[in-house]
């Protein structure tokens, strides 16, 4: 299984990849939704970790696209935005795993 990390903050993306690598998962980082869409689509056994506040195409658009795949991967939405903003966005989506920053290993690993 591969973990796809779509996160514009380099520190967060790299730290996530380092941690997941340590747990034994392959991780690929994408700085934005556009570069994620250019890569081959994720497989059903993969996990996609996507930040809500991306530049350009939003995290919501990524989730919508993933949900339309024939065999969608598991999706984990992460965000550091305020409750209100998150509420506004999440209400437009089907239920997904949602984690609020700051993240930690204990918070994340059970969902992989």
């Amino acid at each position: 299984m591969t973990v796809h990390i779509i996160e514009d903050d380099y520190g967060v993306a790299d730290a996530l990849a380092t941690l997941l690598g340590g747990v034994g998962h392959d991780a690929i980082c994408y700085p934005d939704a556009e570069s994620f869409f250019e890569a081959p689509p994720p497989l059903s056994q993969d996990v996609v970790i996507v930040d809500l506040g991306l530049p350009g195409l939003s995290g919501v658009q990524v989730v919508r696209w993933l949900e339309k795949l024939k065999t969608p991967p598991r999706i984990i939405v992460i965000s550091g935005q305020s409750n209100t903003q998150i509420r506004n966005v999440i209400s437009k989506l089907r239920p997904v795993v949602f984690l609020r920053k700051p993240l930690s290993e204990d918070l994340l690993v059970p969902h992989l």
């Binding site: 967060v12 730290a15 380092t18 941690l19 340590g22 550091g80 305020s82 920053k101 700051p102 930690s104």
Partner: peptide, 25 residues
């Protein structure tokens, strides 16, 4: 406050995850 919380969250998340990676390894 909300903006600072958001901006600080990013590096803090990174710090936590890096340290956890080191500890685990």
């Amino acid at each position: 406050g909300a903006a600072i919380a958001h901006e600080l969250n990013q590096p803090l998340t990174a710090v936590l995850l890096y340290l956890q990676a080191v500890v685990r390894k």
